[in-house]
Nucleic acid binder design. Sequence first.
DNA 1: GTATCTGCAAAACATTTGCCCTTTG
DNA 2: CAAAGGGCAAATGTTTTGCAGATAC
Lengths: 135, 135
Amino acid sequence: MGVKIRKSKQRNRILEVLQSSRNHVTANWIYDELRPEFPSVSLGNVYRNLNILVDQGLVNRLGFGSNVDLYEAVREPHYHFVCDRCGAVEDVRVPEDLQHRVESRISRDYGHVVTSKSVEFHGICRACRADGVTM
Amino acid sequence: MGVKIRKSKQRNRILEVLQSSRNHVTANWIYDELRPEFPSVSLGNVYRNLNILVDQGLVNRLGFGSNVDLYEAVREPHYHFVCDRCGAVEDVRVPEDLQHRVESRISRDYGHVVTSKSVEFHGICRACRADGVTM
DNA sequence: GTATCTGCAAAACATTTGCCCTTTG
DNA sequence: CAAAGGGCAAATGTTTTGCAGATAC
């Protein structure tokens, strides 16, 4: 059996910060957010607690091809759009039925059970397009 | 204008290795593959060349939430399925029309242009299911 | 010949871990 | 008070980079 998890002010605050943030943020950004309230908090502890929150299914860790992980509080399932020009990461929603059709294809054709998905579309976002980016 | 790219035996071999490999492999694995032919090749140079090949659009870099990047030669577009139990990464194909419907929804609803996608489904693969994994 | 490529080793970087003290229950 | 959490600093592991010599064109 695993380790028992107790309450912790720091971990609580980390979750709150994530839930009240609209963007996908780095561990280091969270660390800076916590410092006013917990002046002696350590970055290592932010990482430790993020790992716990991810294990608990309360937070998603996102790679996005960069070498820095981003974190977001778990909400309704959604996909991500990453702009290759400006780097912006935006949530996108795709109708449930389209999502289900893709996943049931995978079940049917391959026999795998899909429990979660991490989908990122890359391209040029609306704002960059408006700026006349052609590529 | 960028830097001119010359031919290089090592980079050529790296691409061949990727093209003849069915799996998604690490830089370090490629490094080991090259050593018989280029005994003094360096891991740093493998990384340098992988970056060039990715820039040239010949190779995909895949994060998969792990802290090690995986590489694959570029072929037809496809998605990935990652087994959370055994870590296996498998290519999955989804009918073109379903892919296009998802992407045109993003264009229509958000105004972004989708040029590529990196899609990973997570779950339990067929083999692990057969082994009686319940989760 | 000159710009690019390479090997080597060191640097950079995010993330993890060990140790010992503090807090929680 | 026993077990989990935190701070600190060192360790880890992957990827990048600076430099001097080798290679491509």
